[in-house]
């Protein structure tokens, strides 16, 4: 990846949670649910992580994120949705993904936020490489199911 860029749902810059929340203050909503994905210190084998490197098929990822947001807006009455996923190299503790959902009532916001993160993890072409003292490896995950014949 060359240089820093911001397309829409993907960013190579540090996710500024406070700024995102301030930018979207909205007095018509009664509930805001925030999901933060962060880089864990230990991997699944309890080995200390040095870094995570996220790679995306960027143009496809942007399209799928947009599709997921559209689906979510059809399923629930939502005022605002913000989804932002980091790509590039992240250190332990950094935010890799943020999902903020605001609605008049909390129930819709919780359900919608859950739907979005689950969909992101099963459908958006993003991969992470784990870097430890023992080496590097791509983490296995979910095979994207075919959408059409």
């Amino acid at each position: 990846m060359e240089g820093e860029f911001y397309l829409g749902y993907l960013t190579s810059e540090v996710i500024d949670v406070n700024r995102l929340l301030v930018d979207r203050q909205n007095t018509s909503v009664g509930g805001t649910v925030i999901f933060l994905g962060t880089v864990r210190e230990l991997n699944s084998e309890n080995i200390k992580l040095l870094q995570l490197n996220y790679e995306a098929y960027e143009t496809m990822a942007e399209e799928i994120f947009s599709e997921i947001e559209t689906e979510a807006r059809k399923k629930w009455e939502i005022e605002e949705i913000t989804v932002l996923h980091r790509i590039g190299t992240l250190s332990v503790g950094e935010v890799s993904v943020i999902i903020i959902v605001s609605s008049k009532h909390r129930k819709e916001a919780f359900e919608c936020c859950r739907y979005i993160i689950d969909s992101v993890k099963s459908r958006v072409p993003i991969w992470k490489m784990e870097i430890t003292n023992k080496g590097k490896r791509w983490l296995g995950g979910t095979l994207i199911p075919p959408k059409e014949k």
Partner: peptide, 29 residues
């Protein structure tokens, strides 16, 4: 395999103008 940024199954026919990609299991989030 994706064609024009959509995951497709093995019966889908390929055109030379298609944007094709091999997508290993994803692990975003």
């Amino acid at each position: 395999i994706s064609i024009n940024r959509r995951a497709v199954d093995d019966t889908k026919l390929i055109r030379t103008t298609d944007e094709l990609a091999l997508l290993p299991p994803i692990s975003g989030g």
